Amino acid sequence: MTTNTNIPEPDPVWDYCQIWDSLQKIKAKIDVALEFMSEQEYASLYSDQEIKKLLAPASNKLIEIVNDVLIDDKE
């Protein structure tokens, strides 16, 4: 698996700058969860709970962005 870590910083006046920053923070939380998962030899209740704990804030923020920040084309 490869990841693209060569993403340039956006111009602060760019319309999507705040969303981009939020998505980068979400991605960082996902990366931490993936790293934790890669260190687990077997799935367990403990590891599942830890992964959920790591991903819940990212999930909540992503849902907020999708539902509340991005413009709904039905409006």
Rank of each mutant, 00 (worst) to 15 (best):
S22A: 14
S38T: 09
L55V: 08
E41Q: 10
I63W: 08
E9N: 07
A56N: 14
P8I: 00
K52W: 11
L70S: 11
Y42N: 06
E35I: 03
D11G: 02
N67A: 11
N6A: 11
S44A: 05
L54T: 01
K74N: 15
T5C: 12
N4E: 10
F36V: 04
P10Q: 02
L23A: 03
N4Y: 07
S44W: 02
A28F: 03
D31G: 09
L62D: 02
A33Y: 02
I63M: 12
Y46A: 14
W20H: 09
K29S: 08
A58D: 04
S44L: 05
Q40G: 05
A56M: 12
S47P: 02
D31Y: 01
P8V: 00
Q49N: 14
E41T: 12
V32R: 13
Y16M: 13
L62C: 11
L45M: 11
L45Q: 15
D31T: 08
D21G: 03
V32W: 01
T2Q: 13
D31F: 00
P10M: 04
S38W: 06
M37Q: 06
D68E: 15
K25A: 08
L45C: 10
W20N: 08
L62Q: 06
P10H: 00
I7Y: 07
A33G: 09
E75N: 14
A28W: 04
T5F: 15
A56Y: 08
P10R: 04
P12Y: 05
P10W: 00
K61A: 14
A56P: 06
V13F: 08
Q40T: 05
Y16H: 11
I7S: 07
E75H: 12
P57Q: 00
V69M: 07
P57C: 00
E35Q: 10
I30H: 04
S22Q: 13
T3N: 13
K52F: 11
D68T: 03
K27I: 01
E75K: 13
A56Q: 15
T2E: 15
E41R: 05
Y46C: 11
V32G: 03
A43C: 09
M37E: 08
Y46W: 06
K74E: 13
Q18S: 13
I63A: 13
V32L: 05
I30N: 02
Q24N: 14
K25R: 14
N6Q: 14
P57W: 00
N4H: 10
P12R: 02
